[in-house]
């Protein structure tokens, strides 16, 4: 029983972080219909921003959120504006050119990080990094609990933003039907730029929250990109609520897989779920929840 409960807690807490990672990807995929294969790398950049703030300015990682998120928002906007948007006008045979472009961007970001910070492992040690509290026999990591609640908070904010504000509605309109949105007077270029920026800012939040309990090196992005698209497909494109479900499902699947099947299967379980969902529940949880 203790094993089961602890696994459940571990899965849900990790799932909270995963939802944040997935939410950004979900928005980008929803609006632009492209897979952002630089998503994990953007998270890596955010983590370095937070790390630099902590290391040089002594800024607490949670305050680092206020630096990393705007910084990544800007970076995301620039990437969209100067590398991805121009591709829309270029004649090419494969529509997947934008996806390939994100691969290139990911490589460039990783190598720039390596130039500046070298390949060394970095980590941020705070007073709460290893802090825990116990409910019964089950241990909770303080940092992960905080991360979980911030993730939920961001989901609520995004949900409000997408349904109640003008920009949010334009984003959803573009996601549903780009041409129709254009006809209705939505500046779709501007919307794509904002969306990419927001997606980057969200993954920046995830990276920053992960930093106190994890560590950092330039190649960290790849696995997280993979997790992000698994979550996105699980949750459904463009759905914030779906991303939360997707994230927690993946977190739980990995945790229970690790406990009851084997830690080595950790990654594979996510990928198999991913293919199953693609095939049997195309559209993900969004199809069930409708939001």
């Amino acid at each position: 029983m203790e094993v089961f409960l602890q696994t459940l807690v571990a899965g849900i807490l990790k799932g909270g972080l995963y939802s944040l990672i997935g939410m950004g990807m979900s928005m980008i995929m929803g609006v632009m219909k492209i897979i952002n294969l630089a998503h994990g790398q953007l998270m890596m950049v955010a983590m370095y921003v937070t790390f630099a703030c902590f290391h040089f300015l002594g800024l607490d990682p949670y305050l680092g959120l206020f630096v990393a998120m705007p910084a990544l928002f800007l970076l995301g906007c620039l990437i969209q504006k100067y590398t991805l948007n121009p591709l829309m006008e270029v004649e090419s045979i494969l529509p997947e050119n934008q996806v390939l472009m994100t691969v290139g961007i990911g490589m460039v970001l990783t190598e720039i990080a390596r130039f500046i910070f070298t390949s060394d492992y970095k980590s941020v040690q705070t007073s709460y990094s290893g802090a825990t509290f116990f409910i019964g026999e089950t241990s909770f990591s303080v940092a992960l609990v905080i991360a979980f609640f911030i993730a939920v908070l961001f989901t609520l904010i995004m949900f409000w933003f997408l349904t109640k504000t003008d920009i949010g509605r334009s984003i959803r309109a573009t996601a549903q039907d780009k041409d129709a949105a254009l006809l209705m007077g939505v500046d779709s270029k501007r919307i794509t730029i904002i969306t990419f920026g927001l997606g980057s800012a969200l993954v920046a939040a995830a990276g920053t929250l992960l930093l106190p309990v994890y560590y950092l090196f330039p190649d960290i992005g790849g696995p997280f990109t993979r997790k992000a698209f698994v979550i996105t497909i699980l949750g459904g494109l463009g759905s914030t609520v779906g991303a939360i479900f997707g994230g927690i499902t993946l977190g739980l699947a990995e945790a229970f897989g690790a406990t009851y099947i084997g830690m080595a299967f950790d990654d594979m379980i996510g990928l198999i779920i991913f293919i199953l969902v693609l095939l049997f529940l195309p559209g993900g949880f969004k199809r069930l929840t409708k939001i």
């Binding site: 591709l87 090419s92 472009m101 290139g104 990783t110 190598e111």
Partner: peptide, 24 residues
């Protein structure tokens, strides 16, 4: 020294440039 370390960066930049300038 830096150039020796930059081969992945070179790859990345090449990809970005090729897709932008020579999409086909």
């Amino acid at each position: 020294k830096y150039i020796g370390q930059a081969h992945v960066l070179g790859f990345g930049i090449l990809v970005v440039v090729v897709i932008l300038v020579l999409p086909n």
